[in-house]
Design a protein around this nucleic acid. Structure first.
Lengths: 209, 209
DNA sequence: ACCTGAACACCGTTCAAGT
DNA sequence: ACCTGAACACCGTTCAAGT
């Protein structure tokens, strides 16, 4: 074939295919050759558009983070902004759990990650939190959100009754898988509620650092 | 060489070498051939002791979780137990951050993981929390602990001032790397404190489900 | 039982050759 | 500029051969 008059690939097509592959089969299943085959080209062709596989994965992470709603902070009380943003971020990651390990390490150089950090930190600073505390709160929210998206707590327990025979309190742990949605969502909702109400209490008492 | 009269390898030696390699160079740097070379044998020899590479990684995760102190619950108030256990777990993961993605998905079939779940859940049940709430609290603690261990929040921001030029509130984010210890530890300590004090408030008000 | 070399089907990436 | 085939140095894993 050599060079076609109309390019066969674009960065966007590559990112979309990679994202779908990661969603469907996991990060480990993404290979340059498999991705290329999916796109109807040979493996090395991808290097005309991205320098490395890591760059492709990074672009997928960027496209996922870009789906988070950060407009919720504008004009809102910091508590409401934080709560709505956290729910939006959580929902996006729940839809794309396999990419979470990549973005859990921070924004890096990704524009969407930096824009999100700017929005969260800015809202906290504008509300009157000290710089150090605003940073802590931002970190804390990331811990809860990525920690919960990294893997279902409920599905972390094998649905095998025999496994729990020797653990008296876990004798019903094999039933967790059947209710994993309620368990995982309930735990996240509880965590978000506890964190925001207790932060709110401190704030109202004037403790903002 | 063929079979030596005294076996060259043991499961324990393999796990120790794999753990050191993961700590020093990361999960991705662990390969069967490199691990074998480190142990003075050829790659395939490892398959006489473990069926797959995943089993070796799992054994490393087990050995890390086994270092967490779960005796803190015996005879203690549930609040104190939870706080001490969380600190112990956090300290262990901070010492071995590269294995966190493996154990963040739950206990699986690892005895140390199951024993830890038993201790945490048992302490909450014995304190009077409902089964559903005890599960939520256990999940929540895992979210915070693994989420914070998965990667430094502060180091997730590149120490490159130019990167933040267009983000008004992030103009000092490049300084985070210099204080990453205070930032990460401060955020975890704040999160633990907020969660436990607000849970304690609910508990004292009789809201245990 | 336990270690070995050879082999299989994969990887990410480079590069000269084609249009 | 952009796609290709061939090649490099790796992977995890299998297996027959050795003691």
């Amino acid at each position: 074939m050599a060079r076609p008059r109309q390019a066969l690939l674009t960065r966007q097509r590559i990112v979309e295919a990679a994202s779908a592959m990661i969603d469907a089969e996991g990060l480990a299943a993404l290979s340059m050759r498999r991705l290329a085959t999916e796109l109807g080209v040979q493996g090395p062709s991808l290097y005309n558009h991205f320098a490395t596989k890591a760059e492709i994965v990074d672009a997928v992470a960027e496209s996922v983070v870009a789906q988070v709603d950060v407009d919720v902070f504008t004009g809102a009380d910091w508590r409401d902004g934080l709560r709505l943003w956290a729910k939006s971020y959580h929902a996006v990651l729940t839809a794309h759990p396999n990419i979470v390990p990549v973005l859990a390490t921070g924004p890096g150089r990704r524009p969407a990650g930096l824009a999100m950090a700017e929005a969260v930190y800015g809202a906290l600073i504008d509300a009157g939190w000290s710089r150090a505390r605003a940073t802590h709160i931002g970190a804390l929210m990331r811990y809860l959100i990525t920690g919960s998206a990294l893997g279902s707590f409920a599905l972390g327990f094998a649905a095998d009754p025999e496994l729990y025979a020797r653990y008296p309190h876990l004798h019903r742990a094999h039933e967790l898988a059947a209710h994993h949605d309620e368990v995982d969502e309930g735990a996240f909702a509880l965590g978000l509620d506890l964190l925001i109400t207790s932060l709110s209490d401190r704030y109202d008492q004037g403790v903002r650092r």
